[in-house]
Write a protein that binds this DNA or RNA. Structure first.
Length: 424
RNA sequence: GAGCUUGUAGCUCAGUUGGUUAGAGCGCCAGGUUGUGGCCCUGGAGGUCGUGGGUUCAAUUCCCAUCAGGCUCCCCA
């Protein structure tokens, strides 16, 4: 096809009317369920200060080092938010949300931006929903976050997921482990992949995440972080696992699961969908007990997760799950002649006033074309108006599903519609 | 950031071993029924064959570049 003069940027897509139904469905589901879990929505700006994201996620994280959309205007440095944990925490600190009392249970839905190379399940503008529980160190918060995450996927019908679970401990135990890991890798340093050699110095934990062939033998023989957890961390992890068992949520422990952002501590988890191919992480999260302080607030424990909405839809597609309903309209007014069009224009409002959706032809088309259009719009009823009907005040209400029709006054038509609605 | 692969109508795809007007199905518009949809029939609109350059008498077809999609790596949701 020839290239249009203007198009979306690389890796950014329009959500067209035919697809928007499933988005609305999912957003509605998330909102309804979040309310049931007693979470409150929070909305933060698309643009954040560069420094927040750099401090929050870590200078060396892949996201910050190569995937950030940023620009400056005067002395202000802007980034398009690549995730929402740091912004939500920023908001929490900025507005002293701790003063509202208790743990803050927040959820969000919205677009994120990462300058990655696009492919299926990975767009430069993509959408996440997620939640953050700020102000509780209790493992019950971890369990609730995971529970909500699983709950949404189950509600949608995605049940064949794998929950991977790990604990990366508190900072002290992690330092211990880092030392042990480096000691283990030291003799093999020359044999490690280039990336892993770099990470050896910067962020040795991430070596565990490596998919490089040459690293695998050393990763498999590496010490396991869960052996280095402090007693508190161990207890916390143990408690999370017990809560998950009580909730009937199966999980797989993966001692090599490490998350990409620097702010994570203790519990780390990922939800994997076998239906996604290369981008198989459909949701991920964990505890980040140090982030609030890092951003300038009081030391405050927190836990949360984020899920990729596009990836959720891909999984649905693979599983044959259809979300949302077909489009339809309650009443399509079919008009014949100018007088009828005027009548229709006025009476559309009366119908809508009663809570029924209503439309009519805007193109001055033939009756047949209008009927066809009504069919395409999936109209429940057509209301046929011509000179005859205007003269005797009886209009034809055609039930498009039953294919029968009757002549009624407009008042009768409205009550007929209401009767039909009550049947449902 | 790297490798591979694809790019023909709104959509899904044929086709052209380089040669006058590029096809199908679906969708769209109109008519068959001068006031009645879904099925059927007839007709129509819609494509400089992703874009730019090169080779050639001639390129949608071959070559190069570029852009976009897909798969994989990397990373992540």
């Amino acid at each position: 096809m020839s290239q249009p003069k203007y198009s979306t940027h690389h890796g950014m897509t329009d959500i067209l009317p035919d697809e928007v139904k499933k988005w609305q469905y999912l957003e509605q589901l998330i909102r309804t369920e979040a309310e049931l879990f007693n979470f409150e929505e929070i909305r933060t700006p698309i643009l954040e200060q560069t420094e927040l994201i750099v401090r929050g996620l870590g200078q060396l994280s892949d996201i910050v080092s190569k995937e950030i959309f940023s620009f400056s205007r005067g002395d202000d440095h802007y980034v398009l938010r690549p995730e929402l944990t740091a912004p939500v925490v920023r908001s929490y600190v900025q507005h002293h949300l701790n003063q509202r009392g208790g743990a803050q249970k927040l959820y969000y839905i919205g677009p994120m931006f990462r300058a990655e190379r696009p492919q299926r399940g990975r767009q430069r503008q993509f959408h996440q929903f997620g939640l953050e529980i700020i102000g509780s160190s209790d493992p019950i918060a971890d369990a609730e976050a995971i529970s909500f995450m699983i709950h949404i996927f189950r509600k949608v019908g995605i049940t064949n997921t794998i929950l991977k679970l790990n604990s990366i401990g508190d900072p002290a135990s992690r330092e211990e482990y880092k030392k042990a890991l480096k000691t283990h890798l030291q003799p093999h340093y020359e044999k490690l992949s280039e990336i892993s050699q770099k990470r050896y110095h910067n962020n040795p934990l991430r070596i565990l995440d490596s998919k490089e062939e040459e690293d695998q033998p050393f990763i498999q023989s590496a010490p396991v972080i869960t052996d280095y957890l402090s007693e508190d961390s161990q207890q916390h992890y143990q408690q999370v696992k017990e809560y998950l068992q009580n909730l009937g949520i199966p999980y797989e422990e993966d001692p090599y699961l490490v998350r990409g952002m620097d702010y994570y501590t203790q519990t780390a988890f990922e939800l994997i969908s076998p239906d996604l191919g290369a981008q198989d992480a459909i949701a991920g999260g964990g505890r980040y007990d140090l982030l609030v302080e890092e951003i300038g607030g009081q030391p405050t424990p927190a836990v949360g997760f984020a899920a990729g909405m596009e990836r959720l839809f891909i999984a649905c597609e693979e599983l044959g799950i259809e979300l949302g309903t077909e489009k339809s309209v309650d009443v399509y007014i079919v008009t014949l002649g100018e007088r009828a069009r005027e009548w229709g224009l006025r009476h559309l409002l009366d119908i809508r006033e009663k809570g029924f959706s209503a439309t009519m032809d805007y193109l001055g088309r033939s009756m047949k074309a209008q009927m066809k259009d009504a069919n395409r719009e999936n109209a429940n009823f057509t209301l046929i108006v011509g000179e005859n009907e205007l003269n005797d005040g009886l209009f034809i209400l055609r039930n498009m599903r039953e294919s029968d029709e009757e002549a009624l006054t407009f008042t009768q038509i409205l009550s007929k519609l209401e009767k039909e609605r009550d049947k449902e």
